[in-house]
Amino acid sequence: MIAAISWVPKGVAKSVPAEADPPSKEEIEQILKSGLLDKREDSDDEEAEEDMNVDESKENEDDEVAIALAAADALGKATQVSSVGTNDIIDGLKELDMDNYDEEEEGIELFGSGLKDLYYASNDMDPYLKDKDNDSEEDDDMIIRSDDSVIVCASNEDDVSHLEIMILEDLSDGETNMYVHHALIIPAFPLCTAWLDCPIKGGERGNFIAVGSMEPAIEIWDIDIIDEVQPSVILGGIADIKRKGKKKSIKYKKDSHKDAVLGLSWNKEYRNILASASADHSVKVWDVTTEACNLNYE
């Protein structure tokens, strides 16, 4: 399901996106403190309750499987078997000695006659490496050209949310080709997006997508990085979740929305300004460089 879509101006994206660095210890601790995992546990508990009826309906099926496995086990261990065909099968399995299948006998070389078969002087000489022409084509697909059109699709499939960076290229024969260049996994179901080029990380301009979701936080992702696991900026969101029995209290960050973010709009003239609208009936104006809310209307 595609929930939102945004164009990226031509020539803005890096020709070859950078690889993401693994999250630091501080970033991991920040994720744990954010309460996101606790909220996911709540979601899992709700889904578990909804699936109780389904689990009950599967019990009979599981019982039948258990009975079948027990019967098969008894058949294999029986001392007297009347069927000649079954005896043949059991004898054959014993002869194969499947329990020791992975153990190699000394002196036997299964895949070669010596070390000379284990390597080649160069990759060009190795026939088992995939075709070099295909490698060249894959490397070529990773390049984003200045005349390529770039689209960012926010989608959800099998309860996993993504930002898919798609390339729309003009081919030499006058036709067009569209494909997913890379994708980023995001933590919550997306509802809206807005592209912005504010230089959050320095330089003259950036290439970012702001994402509004079912959560009160607004995440801004660097789409010039492949396999990024953390947004560059988070505006608002949950500061802490406290539990007392079955009840829980949520503490929000200062000036945060209190409900899902339904709309986002970037100010092209004042490039550090982003406006947001929420299901909590409020409109906020953010400075993405300071992560502060400058204006609030409810």
Rank of each mutant, 00 (worst) to 15 (best):
M142R: 15
P9W: 08
A13L: 15
E137C: 02
D259M: 08
S57W: 06
E291Q: 15
K33V: 01
L171H: 05
Y297E: 05
L295T: 03
G237S: 09
L110T: 06
M125A: 13
I234P: 00
W195Q: 05
D255M: 14
D117P: 01
N294W: 11
A154G: 15
A72S: 09
K242C: 04
Y297R: 09
N272H: 15
G35V: 03
V288D: 02
S256R: 09
K33M: 07
D99M: 08
V84I: 13
P190S: 08
H162P: 00
D173G: 06
D63P: 00
A183G: 05
I234A: 05
L171V: 03
D227P: 01
K244D: 15
L184C: 01
D44F: 06
P216H: 00
E46K: 14
L168T: 02
E95N: 10
D21R: 14
S232H: 00
V229E: 14
I151G: 01
P17R: 05
S136T: 14
G174F: 10
S43P: 00
C198G: 02
N207H: 12
A260G: 02
D173A: 09
S155H: 01
I2F: 07
S232Q: 07
I143G: 02
L75V: 12
L69V: 10
E49R: 13
V8E: 03
D173K: 10
W7R: 11
Y120T: 13
E228Y: 00
S6C: 13
E291S: 15
S34H: 06
E169A: 15
M98T: 13
K25Y: 02
K201F: 00
E169N: 13
K58H: 09
D99R: 14
K130H: 04
Y297P: 00
S146R: 14
K25Q: 11
L93P: 00
E41Q: 12
E50L: 14
E298W: 09
D197R: 07
D148L: 07
L163G: 02
D140L: 12
A277P: 04
I186L: 07
